[in-house]
Design a protein around this nucleic acid. Sequence first.
DNA 1: ATTGTATATCGACATTCATCAATATAGATA
DNA 2: TATCTATATTGATGAATGTCGATATACAAT
Lengths: 115, 115
Amino acid sequence: MAGVTKELLLEDISVCAPANHTEPIDRAVAEAMATILKAVADPARLQLLSILKYAPSQEACVCDLTEPLGLSQPTVSHHLKVLADAGLVSRERRGSWAWFSLVPVRLDELRSFLE
Amino acid sequence: MAGVTKELLLEDISVCAPANHTEPIDRAVAEAMATILKAVADPARLQLLSILKYAPSQEACVCDLTEPLGLSQPTVSHHLKVLADAGLVSRERRGSWAWFSLVPVRLDELRSFLE
DNA sequence: ATTGTATATCGACATTCATCAATATAGATA
DNA sequence: TATCTATATTGATGAATGTCGATATACAAT
């Protein structure tokens, strides 16, 4: 099935926007949030997010990322896919290169949820 | 070796207090933060944190937690240990019961790091 | 001491995951 | 078309992890 994205859309986790809970979350919400948190809970992916944050024009292509991470190109590509599926980074193809950039609102959601 | 704790102390991650970075984090910092994030990135543990947050007097014992989570007592005990090792909850023995409560400053650190 | 209850640890199992080499795909250029 | 480069996918492998039953430990109360 081409064109099907596995990205978790914001609407899927209705509870994580305002974080105005008055009672404990249930299993379904916990699983949805855990999916996003798992995407962040990896050293390589934390480095990727950090590099993107401080990159000129807040973006970078895969070829700029393998060397600072010390990982192979397939592995870096894999990590970027995990981040993209979680909605934490976006991908834009320009010529032969794939440019990745942060989706800041997604990290805002994470922080809100932890309040 | 009795009395040895595996808790990650705040001092161990010198960079996560103010979150005033000006350059990308290195692998060591990323690994330290990933350890704490991994502790949070699990549905059962997110539920535990949430239940503790809304519990009367912000604490609960294991026997109060198995039923809402639908998991066995050893499994809940295991998850609480993971959270305690990450410094996210504290444990206090009172009689036969072990009372767990949140360590809010630890969650503050997580949020700061994601800024 | 014995019994009972609450919690922790152990051992095992199935699943997930990070990683790489090999290969496939996409796009640019000749 | 053919070729070159950048990125994505596949397949395999070893490590980490969530879960439970069985057992051990800690504490209270007979």
